[in-house]
Simulated assay, not measured.
Amino acid sequence: MSADRIDKLLQDIRLLDEDRHALVQALREQILKLDKGVTEEAKYGGLLFSASKPFCGVFSYAKHVSLEFGEGASLPDKYQMLEGEGKFRRHIKLTSQQQIKDKHVQAYLLLALKAATPA
């Protein structure tokens, strides 16, 4: 979990788009506050977050930020916000910080964390 790699990735995002950088930072803060055991690493061109195992990732694209869940297909989708049709993965596309609230990101993060944490 090299802090240097995370910092470099965040600097690169900031250079490309300040708004997307702010959105990534807002998501990071929310994810890291979920539990003291949550860790992050720069991997696959984004940020991967783990508890006892990986439970989500944040990836910045040209026009949006994607919050991705490796086991998203098994998460309850009460708010019908999860996108994707693969066997396992689902994601939520975000274009503004307001959408973090509007798309119920906290609820999905808690579900994903719970699914990744042994009982």
Results as ranks from 00 to 15, higher is better:
63 K>E: 14
34 L>C: 12
9 L>G: 00
78 K>S: 05
43 K>H: 11
104 H>G: 10
111 L>P: 12
61 Y>D: 01
36 K>Q: 13
108 Y>G: 07
91 H>G: 01
104 H>T: 04
44 Y>P: 10
107 A>Q: 10
16 L>R: 14
77 D>W: 10
52 S>I: 00
29 E>Y: 03
66 S>H: 02
112 A>G: 13
96 S>M: 08
39 T>N: 04
53 K>C: 08
14 R>Y: 14
80 Q>R: 12
74 S>W: 01
44 Y>C: 05
79 Y>V: 00
116 A>W: 12
12 D>T: 07
79 Y>H: 13
54 P>G: 13
33 K>S: 15
78 K>F: 09
9 L>V: 00
113 L>E: 03
24 V>M: 09
17 D>H: 15
32 L>Y: 04
28 R>G: 05
37 G>C: 10
41 E>C: 04
50 S>A: 14
67 L>K: 02
14 R>V: 08
75 L>R: 08
25 Q>T: 12
84 G>K: 08
53 K>S: 12
67 L>N: 02
106 Q>H: 10
62 A>V: 12
107 A>C: 06
103 K>R: 10
22 A>F: 00
68 E>S: 07
112 A>W: 06
15 L>E: 14
110 L>P: 04
78 K>I: 08
11 Q>C: 07
29 E>L: 12
8 K>S: 11
109 L>I: 09
50 S>E: 01
102 D>C: 08
68 E>T: 06
116 A>V: 15
114 K>E: 15
72 G>K: 06
67 L>F: 04
49 F>L: 07
50 S>K: 10
112 A>I: 12
99 Q>K: 09
80 Q>A: 12
110 L>I: 03
75 L>N: 11
